[in-house]
Design a protein around this nucleic acid. Structure first.
Lengths: 243, 243
DNA sequence: AACGTTTTTGCGGGAACCCGCACTTGTTCA
DNA sequence: TGAACAAGTGCGGGTTCCCGCAAAAACGTT
């Protein structure tokens, strides 16, 4: 078996290597990359059927690396290994997993034993291994009551990037009112109905527009990483339409 | 010498312990806490003159722990040990260091050698050891041209919390126009002068209010951690004034 | 004491935003 | 096929926000 590891933290890297070496008996080839770009370069340079990816690396997120890899070789087995359960990452992943591919998602805080099991489960037994906590978030995001629908999520992204209503409308090809309607639904999902905002003698305490960003961040629906990536997407779009 | 270590990541914890043990020859007592609250509890339970703190821990940030510790024993020597150089942390720290106390700030990405030097520098030689990168950010934040002034920073915080102009005015005890004026200066500092916003056929692309949040986040002037903490401060205030 | 800087304030207009109501479209499911 | 639901559209008004102009306070410096 040939394995590629991508992880930016020195200690975590060493740990992963150690565990991989004494867990996977038929390991024939092992490479370790220190960031996303390096990982992709290395993946192209040799043949791998298994990959361990840290999410949250400098320059390229693990999600982006996975997207790139799966685009080239959908059968690659990927184990995500992360500190957080941010919905941003989870949403990103579930959006790019090719039909029947095998992957896993476990947390760095889990005991070493779990990491071993996950490696065996994903790489050897070829089954999906998802951490309970992660599963919970995944669940909630998919639910149509508590989770955000795709248009709502798009609205959230544009909102966090700082776009105006009109710019959102232009970008997503809907009318002005359409964009505003998406926002309205978003506010509602985040619990910003008119009645829920506390009112002092100074009037309503919150501005829906900015409060929505705050809530999304503190609930991990979006994080600074995801934002950077979306900023990039936006730049691509404006590049084409700004002239 | 008596040393307290606070760090939530298992591997990093072990690493810190190892380095401390074979760097500090006169180490007589060593305790290790796994999060902020535990650290404070432990600090109260025994006598320490030296502490290593991870910033970014669950529940209580390293900054908050430091604040608590220094309030009780300003002569405590603290070494901050973090992944990032977020201005939010740095600003938080420089705001709470008691006059002539000794502290250090180094990055996890630095080689082990640097960590050793920092431990000796701070705990033994009693000198401040600040990483170059961190120093750079600290510098910029203090500069009156590129950095944010205190009122501007307050405005940024309130903005990110999602407050309305009126609520900001009430909270900070200024007139409505005063709050708006702060925002205006903030926008300017962040490079959001009217002319700088790209304009398409859909009109101006950005909404200053939300764009400011985006920029602040991507530049690390504020981060999700700091936001959580500020949310807490806000709750205290509203608790007193909302009734 | 006179100066520059920063911060605050008032006024006012134009733009952007929030949202209720009503209607059309498209999809899903019994 | 028809009902239920999600998503988008147009209209309209009330609010909030953005910001230029101008002038008063607060601060530190020389």
């Amino acid at each position: 078996m040939r394995l590629l590891i991508a992880e930016d933290d020195k200690l975590h890297r060493a740990f992963l290597e150690k565990v991989a070496l004494n867990t996977l008996s038929d390991l024939s080839f092992l490479k370790i990359a220190e960031d996303g770009e390096e990982a992709i370069k290395e993946f192209d340079a040799a043949e791998y059927e298994s990959v361990v990816l840290d999410l949250q690396m400098p320059r390229l997120t693990g999600v982006e690396v996975a997207k790139n890899i799966w685009a080239k070789k959908p059968c690659t087995k990927i184990l995500f290994w992360s500190n957080y359960t941010d919905e941003a990452y989870i949403r990103g992943i579930t959006k790019i997993v090719p039909g029947a591919s095998v992957y896993g998602y476990i947390l760095k805080s889990a005991p070493a034993e779990q990491l071993k099991l996950a490696m065996q489960g994903v790489f050897v037994a070829e089954q999906c291994v998802i951490d309970r906590e992660v599963r919970r978030v995944q669940q909630r995001a998919g639910d149509r009551l508590s989770g955000l629908s795709e248009p709502e999520y798009e609205a959230l992204v544009d909102l966090c990037l700082g776009l105006t209503d009109k710019a959102m409308a232009a970008r997503r090809n809907v009318s002005l009112r359409g964009a505003q309607s998406r926002l309205q639904h978003l506010y509602q999902k985040l619990g910003l109905d008119k009645g829920d905002i506390p009112v002092g003698q100074w009037g309503p305490t919150y501005n829906s527009r900015t409060r929505a960003i705050c809530l999304a961040l503190s609930q991990g629906i979006l994080n600074a990483d995801a934002l950077r990536k979306e900023e990039e997407n936006l730049r691509v779009w404006t590049g084409r339409h700004l002239k």
